[in-house]
Design a binder for these strands. Sequence first.
RNA 1: GCCGGGGUAGCCUAAUUGGUAAGGCGCCAGCCUCGAGAGCUGGUGGGCUUUUGCCCGUGCAGGUUCGAGUCCUGCUCCCGGCGCCA
Length: 409
Amino acid sequence: MLDPKFIRENPEKVRNFLAKRKEDYKIVDEWLEKDKIFRESKAILDSLRHERNVLSEQINALIKNGKQQEAKEKIEESRKIAKKIKILEEDLRNKKKEFLDITFKIPNIVSEEVPEEEKLILEYGKINKKKWQKSYVELLSKKLDFDSAASMSGEGFFVLYDEAAILLRALINFCLDVARKKYREVCVPVLLKERAVFNSAHLPRFKDGMYSTTEGLYLSPTEEVALLNLYANKIIEKKELPLCFTAYTPSFRTEKGATKGLIRVHQFDEVELFKFTTQEDSTKELKKMVEDASEVLKLLNLPFRIKLLPAYEIAAQSSITYDIEVFSPVTGWLEVSSCSNCLDYQARRARIFYLDKGERKLVHTLNGTCLGLQRVFIALLENYQKKDGSIAVPKVLQRYTNFKIIKKA
RNA sequence: GCCGGGGUAGCCUAAUUGGUAAGGCGCCAGCCUCGAGAGCUGGUGGGCUUUUGCCCGUGCAGGUUCGAGUCCUGCUCCCGGCGCCA
């Protein structure tokens, strides 16, 4: 969430970035109204509480001095106020809830660096497109089985066999090993409490995009949620920052518009990067994160490009987002990473602070995919295929696969 | 899942039969000093209020009460024990 004080003092700025996000900026007026009502009600309640507190203190003094009769009269008086307070408290609770609900609906500030339209930042590697190249589906043939997956889990799932399964696992390990050089590896849960998912701001906005269980837990839509919550309600020493984590887990999304294939599936694999930084370092650290994620593609010798997304394409919690797309000869450009600076938006919800000379400050949180593995998998197959239908395994992956080539199926 | 014990500010520890959160460390500022340290003084949770000031704050959410760290209910996490378990 944004700092209410910021919204109150800069409603124009908030309207402005809502417009950039192509969202309804009238919500700001609604917010200002709710904020005003809430604060006015609270002021009335506060003065009543003050009266009660004064009376209470008098009652205490009277009782100590043995003046029971006078105390009794004061208690009677105070009782009336207490009744009023109770009614107003109930009312204020509702108003506070309304106020918070609307505050949570307002997305993060948009960074000044965010362009009007998608902006190409970098192109890397040589695009190699040949007429004879086949799609990953053709290449894998029976090693990729959508039918069995559909019969046990429904549409939007897949089964991999043999070298295909091994290659995906190799990719997971490779990405993790590259990430591990700079990020601490951590193994995290994929079932998460409502509060945790709320902290990352996936709730309430992304509710329909997530699976939930009968026990009320949500299936992780991205490791971003778990990694953020490593420090929920904690205070970090400034000298410990930046804290960098990486994790691999499967991620789960309902993907209502899922199409057949590996590109958009309900259960997919990603290695995630996450950083907690000081307020002054987050911009610098985001750039490093984008480089770290690109590093994997460079090592795999896959062509890719980096884009800076416009405001209307970035997540509500993000203030700026870089996307990395890998080139796959038949399937085309595939988004494999999204690196975002959430500033203090998630930290305010999750209450994550650091101590700077005794002063408590909200951390900045950054997240990035490193990478979306099914999509890198596709690019790998299509880029490394040979004319005879076999697929070479990149040198850096061979120690993970223990084979150098996937023969034509 | 059951039984018992616990959660107080950045950290550590107090608070009588319910009477309105005390102290220490650390940190910040000032004094002192060539400077640092020590020492001394003040300040160090959040919000509203331009001042004075007021409200809230003892894991979270409620309840009882004139008044709750303290009593009650639900939840949560930690510690110990039992149970279950790959």
